[in-house]
Nucleic acid binder design. Structure first.
Lengths: 199, 199
DNA sequence: GCGTAAAAGCTAATGGCATTAGCCAAGTGA
DNA sequence: TCACTTGGCTAATGCCATTAGCTTTTACGC
């Protein structure tokens, strides 16, 4: 009987796909094993149990999100960079809800840090250059940016917006509010274009 | 042998306490039964399985959060009401992390709506009166407010803020940014006090 | 008081899942 | 070719949720 030819990367990818398709809460070793045509205990040769699988999916999410946001923002600056980054952030969460959910639990699954070149936090920090925010305020501004984007995406993916009003429009308005708040951030100096990209 | 004297409300309360103390992911029928000194299947006489327990805890969270935020904001208006509400919102999430987490999943556990008089969304909507936001913009403004508060609290409680910088200060800055964004909301008319309550 | 019926708790049993131990075959390298 | 590593397997354990069905308490009508 031929071997399945699994690797840690293959297992993690399949787990990520499963959690995107069926929801992060449906992610189990048994379900991944079934999709790979293998017995559950076999997975232990490639991942460190269920916690390890969660960590791998979270890392895929962190790298994927960081990469998409970075790609969207490159070549832009100030409000334009922020709008592009915000759009990419939300699109990634829609396209990969399981990975995105896993990503939020990364701190709990200690010991593993996302790849530093695409760490989403660093990417968002880079996007904030051009707003003239003083160095000692940057941490606060980045946290505010992360909170806002994550909060919207999290409520949206959990079905928190029940009313029929256009959710895309809410997001555009939220991002514009963010642009204004960052422009007027305490100590901010530079004045850049504030025109909205969308009516 | 005497009876334990359980009721649905007692079971739900104990489950909420457990999830606050041990984390929502530790909430199980077995753990609740043990704390109540009862066999696991006995709980089925009072709650509708694990999903029902989740729903009950979520409802306790919705009512508790709505009540606290409302109490904090009553008698205030505009930015002052918003600051008070934001503070109460975050304090509730800190004091009751299990209930708060459960609350986010309410839409998934369909069929049950939080008590309308303390529905957190309605309370936050009331807080926004005084910002002069036109009716057709209110849904967007409320969603933005919810997203911002929830995003911060969610990242914070998941350990998302790793750096040592003062998280209280970040929250104060975020709330002030929110105040400015709501003042300058498209179509907003009224101009109210924007002074910060905290340096 | 008394007897009946509902309700509350129990034990037993089933099935899903994660995890560990230990076996065996398939590659791999001298 | 042969030994060793490695990937996959089965078996077994334990925890949890859930259902079925039993027993005893409690409440209530007489």
């Amino acid at each position: 009987m031929p071997r399945a030819g699994l690797t840690p990367a293959l297992v993690a990818e399949e787990a990520a796909r499963l959690s995107d398709e069926e929801g992060f809460r449906s992610l189990s070793l048994a379900a991944v094993a079934k999709r790979l045509g293998v017995a559950t205990p076999s997975l232990y040769k490639h991942v460190d149990g269920l916690a390890g699988l969660h960590r791998e999916v979270a890392l895929l999410g962190a790298n994927g999100l960081g990469e998409r946001v970075q790609r969207a923002a490159v070549g832009r600056s100030g409000p334009d960079a922020l709008r592009a980054a915000a759009g990419a952030y939300r699109r990634y969460a829609h396209a990969h809800p399981g990975r995105y959910t896993a990503l939020q639990q990364l701190p709990r699954l200690a010991g593993a840090e996302p790849d530093l070149t695409t760490d989403p936090v660093r990417v968002l920090a880079a996007v904030l250059r051009g707003f003239g925010i003083p160095q000692d305020q940057m941490v606060h501004a980045i946290r505010t940016l992360r909170s806002t984007l994550h909060g919207f995406v999290d409520l949206e993916t959990h079905g928190g917006f029940g009313l029929p009003e256009d959710v895309d429009e809410t997001y555009a308005l939220l991002v514009e509010g963010l642009v204004r708040a960052l422009h007027q951030w305490p100590g901010a100096t530079e004045r850049t274009n504030t025109r909205r990209s969308r009516g």
